[in-house]
Computed example of a mutant assay.
Amino acid sequence: MALANKFERASATARKFTLEYLEQITNNFSEEHVIGRGAYGVVYKGVLENGEVIALKKLCWRPDTNDTEFSTEFNNLMRVQHPNITRLVGYCYHQGHELIEHKGEYIFPHVEERVLCFEYLKGGSLDKKISDESCGLDWHTRFKIINGVSLGLHYLHNGSKDSIYHLDLKPANILLDKNMVPKIGDFGLSRLFPSAQTIITNKNIGTRGYMPPEYIDKGEITSKHDVFSLGVIIIPIMAGDEGYFKSAHMSSQEFLELVHENWRKRLQATMLSHTSDQIETCIKIALRCVEVDRNKRPTIAEIVNELNKVGTREEFT
C-alpha cells in the first residue's frame, strides 16, 4: 500500500490514468497496438482524448512480481525534464483481484497492473537506425544523435544534487523523435546516487556488451559505467554494426584512420574541415570511453565540452 500512496502523491506533471481508460485507448491492450517488447513488459501505442499519441509500457505481472523496476523508473523520471530524455506523460497503478483458474480451482489472487505512459516518438529506437557508415543516416544526423545522447547523460549525472546513473544505456533505449532528436529512455535499472562514489553490487543487471569490465568482474558502479556504454554506442554510429569488433582488433590510430577515411570517401567534396574535426573528435571520445581502466575514461562533462567545441565551430575554409 505504501507504494500506491506514493503514486497518489505524485507531481501533477504526470497524469494519473485509470486502467479502464488505458484499456479503452489500446483496445484492451490488443496485439495490434503493440509497438515493442522487452524483458519487463510490452509497449503499446494509444491516443489520448486530446489527440496526443503516447507509448504505454505495461509491466508483466507475475505472482512473484515486485515493484522495484516500476518504482525506480517512475521516481527517476519524475526527477528529470530534459529535451534529450523521454518525457513521462502519466501512469497507472491499479490494484485488485482477478478470477483465474489454478490447478482445477477458481481463485481470486491479488493482482497489480502497472503502466508508465510516455511521449510517442515517431523515429523509433536507435538500434533500428544504425548501419554501415557507407549508407543510412547522414553525418549531420549522426553527430546530432551523439551530441544529444551526451547532453541527456550529462543532465542525469550532473543536473541535480543527486546523480542518476542509467546503467542500461544502449541503442534500443535511445528513442528518436520525428526530427531525429535522441531521447534516453527505459530507466527501469537506473539508480540514484547522492554523491560521486563507487558502489559495489553482487548482482549484474543490464545488457552484456554495454557493461564495463569493472562492473562485470567486481560489481563496481561509478559514473564511468554509463560513459563506457556511451562509447559502445558511439562506435557503431560512427562505423556501422561491425565497428566495435573492428576497433577491438586495431590500434586506436588505425581505427581512427579507417573510420575517417571511410567518411571522407562517402562525403567526398562535401566534407568540410569542421566535419572532419567532428568525425575525429567523436572517434577519439568513443575510444577513450571504452578504456578498460575507468580512470582513463573521460567524464560526461568533459565529453560535452569537447563536442561543444567542434559542434559550434563555423566553417570558413
Score class of each variant (00 low, 15 high):
K6E: 08
A10N: 06
A10L: 06
S11N: 13
E20H: 09
Y21P: 01
Q24G: 04
I25T: 07
F29Y: 15
S30I: 07
E31V: 14
H33N: 06
H33C: 10
I35H: 02
G38T: 06
K45N: 13
G51D: 08
E52R: 15
A55L: 07
L56G: 04
L77G: 05
M78L: 14
M78R: 03
R79A: 14
V80T: 15
H82F: 05
P83F: 06
I85Y: 11
R87M: 11
R87F: 09
V89G: 05
Y91C: 01
Y91Q: 00
Y91R: 02
H94E: 15
H97N: 07
E98D: 14
L99T: 12
I100C: 13
G104A: 04
E113Y: 10
R114A: 11
R114M: 15
L116F: 06
C117Y: 03
G124R: 08
S125L: 04
S125N: 12
S125Y: 00
K128R: 10
W139A: 09
H140C: 00
R142E: 03
R142G: 09
K144H: 08
N147E: 12
V149G: 05
V149S: 08
S150D: 05
G152M: 00
L153V: 13
H154N: 15
Y155W: 15
L156Y: 03
H157V: 11
N158T: 15
S160I: 00
S160D: 12
K161V: 12
D168M: 10
L169T: 02
P171I: 03
I174G: 04
L175R: 05
L176R: 09
P182K: 01
G185W: 07
G185C: 09
D186M: 07
G188D: 07
L189V: 07
R191D: 00
L192A: 04
A196M: 07
Q197P: 00
T198E: 03
K203E: 12
K203Q: 14
R208D: 04
G209K: 00
G209V: 00
Y210R: 00
K218R: 15
G219Q: 08
G219F: 02
E220R: 08
T222M: 02
T222C: 01
T222Q: 02
H225S: 10
H225R: 04
F228N: 02
F228I: 03
I235L: 13
I235K: 02
I237F: 01
I237S: 02
E242N: 06
G243M: 07
S247T: 11
A248F: 00
E254K: 11
F255P: 01
E257W: 07
E261Y: 12
S273V: 13
D277E: 14
E280V: 13
I285E: 03
V292P: 01
V292K: 14
D293F: 01
N295G: 06
N295V: 05
R297Y: 02
I300C: 09
I303S: 06
V304P: 00
N308A: 11
V310F: 05
V310W: 04
F316W: 09
T317S: 08
